[in-house]
Amino acid sequence: MFILEDMEVSKIKMQGLCLLLLMPLLLLPGSAHNTCQWFSKTYTTFRCEDKPCAEHCRKEGFPTGWCDPVALEPPTLMCFCRKPC
């Protein structure tokens, strides 16, 4: 019985050790942190749609763009252009 209990404790310690070794990888900034975004200067509408928003962003020199909600009253969708920083 004593050996079995030691094995269970070893499994728990090994899982904890693996978690500690993986934690820095989980905390490293991903590609989303290296993305800059701005409001589109040319796509200003009350009804934002992703495809026209992306087209306007490409004309403004950005690789991508899409509509995201903005915390205004009432909440609204705005066209954001994005590119790597």
Rank of each mutant, 00 (worst) to 15 (best):
F46G: 13
C48W: 00
N34T: 14
E73S: 14
V70Y: 05
E55W: 00
D50Y: 01
T64V: 14
C48I: 02
H56V: 04
H33D: 15
P75T: 14
Y43I: 02
P69W: 10
C57L: 08
A54H: 10
P75N: 11
F39C: 06
F62K: 03
K51D: 11
D50H: 09
Y43F: 12
C79P: 03
D68Q: 12
V70P: 00
R58F: 04
C81Y: 09
A71M: 12
V70N: 04
G61C: 12
F39D: 14
P69E: 11
P75G: 09
C48S: 01
T44C: 04
Y43G: 00
K59F: 01
T45S: 10
K51V: 11
T64C: 07
W38H: 15
C53Y: 04
L77G: 08
P69D: 07
F80R: 01
C36P: 00
P69K: 10
C53A: 09
W38D: 15
C53H: 03
C53T: 06
C79E: 07
A71L: 13
T64A: 12
C36Q: 10
T35H: 05
E60N: 09
L72I: 10
R47S: 15
Y43V: 02
E60D: 12
S40Y: 00
P69N: 11
A54Y: 02
K41F: 08
E60H: 08
T44G: 04
K41E: 13
D68H: 08
